[in-house]
Design a protein around this nucleic acid. Structure first.
Length: 272
DNA sequence: CCAAGCACCTGACGGC
DNA sequence: TGCCGTCAGGTGCTTG
């Protein structure tokens, strides 16, 4: 579920509360298929102290005092929430007890997400991160624009392609295409340099705004403390098929691009 | 190399 | 009520 802003908000919240905390035990009702097996994961994590929590692409990373890193990918419905100790819920996959009596819980209704522990060497060799493109908030729009230049794929597919730019998913792709006035099926090689720079400038604006609003909550997302985000109230197009365009008053349409629903305004976002 | 389609899972919702 | 189809913040594998 979570895209860059949601994972960023979770990481910031956890960094503030988890730094210096030591993992004292783990309860494993049942991990997801893509997770590291509990037999190897739990011994690597119990006894370790958290140094910092951060994000790269859509991945949540917890750096430990022995140099290892606990990695979470939340996919569509994953959550990582810190709070008071409680009994395992229906979708909880692993619950870490901490030295101050609190608890860190990974839950995931659809079981697409995962948790793994890596040594520094394993993390450096991890294909997923090696393939990931640049961070959109740490790269100038001109450089991001260069990465779609001459590409024949639809711009929506390019935005969702994690090796082009990291961390963008369906919400923030649709919202930035609307702001830039670009049809989702416009090919990368049909977008002029100035328009491409404009697109990535809008993308940065949308991402920063979403982070400041605590992310977007459609159904599952909550931050590190279990609170919902508010940016869903600022959506212009995502999930609004059949609704009115805020700019021209026309009716929003949806098409499938790269297998994903893409909602747009046919008047304001013409195919180039 | 690229694009499309499906697979992985569970739950919510709309139509009949 | 219930059954069925469709859809969902993502990624990865197979196929053409």
């Amino acid at each position: 579920m979570p895209e860059l802003p949601e994972v960023e908000v979770i990481a910031r919240g956890l960094d503030a509360t988890l730094a210096g905390r030591t993992v004292v035990d783990a309860e494993v009702p049942g991990l997801t298929r893509l997770s590291e097996p509990a037999e190897t994961l739990v011994p690597k994590v119990v006894g370790r102290t958290v140094v910092r929590v951060y994000r790269r692409a859509k991945v949540l990373l917890v750096g430990m005092d022995d140099g290892s890193t606990l990695v979470f990918h939340l996919k569509m419905t994953g959550r990582v929430v810190h709070g008071a100790r409680r009994a395992a819920g229906r979708h909880d996959r692993i619950l870490f007890g901490l030295d101050d009596g609190s608890q860190l819980v990974f839950s995931d209704m659809r079981k697409f997400g995962y948790v793994r522990s890596f040594t520094p060497e394993e993390l450096a060799a991890w294909d997923f991160l090696k393939r990931a493109g640049p961070e959109p908030l740490e790269t100038v729009p001109g450089e991001l624009a260069r990465r779609i230049r001459g590409r024949r794929s639809a711009v929506k597919a390019l935005l969702l392609n994690q090796s082009v730019v990291a961390g963008i998913g369906n919400i923030y792709a649709d919202e930035s295409l609307f702001r830039a006035g670009l049809h989702p099926e416009t090919r990368g090689d049909r977008i002029g340099r100035a328009k491409a720079v404009e697109l990535f400038t809008h993308l940065q604006d949308v991402l920063r705004l979403a982070i400041s609003e605590n992310g977007s909550s459609i159904s599952d997302y909550v931050n590190a403390h279990g609170d919902a985000g508010a940016f869903q109230n600022s959506f212009n197009v995502y999930g609004k098929k059949g609704g009115k365009c805020v700019r021209c008053g026309g009716t929003l349409r949806a098409v499938k691009v790269a297998g994903r629903t893409s909602t747009f305004c046919p008047k304001c976002q013409r195919k180039q």
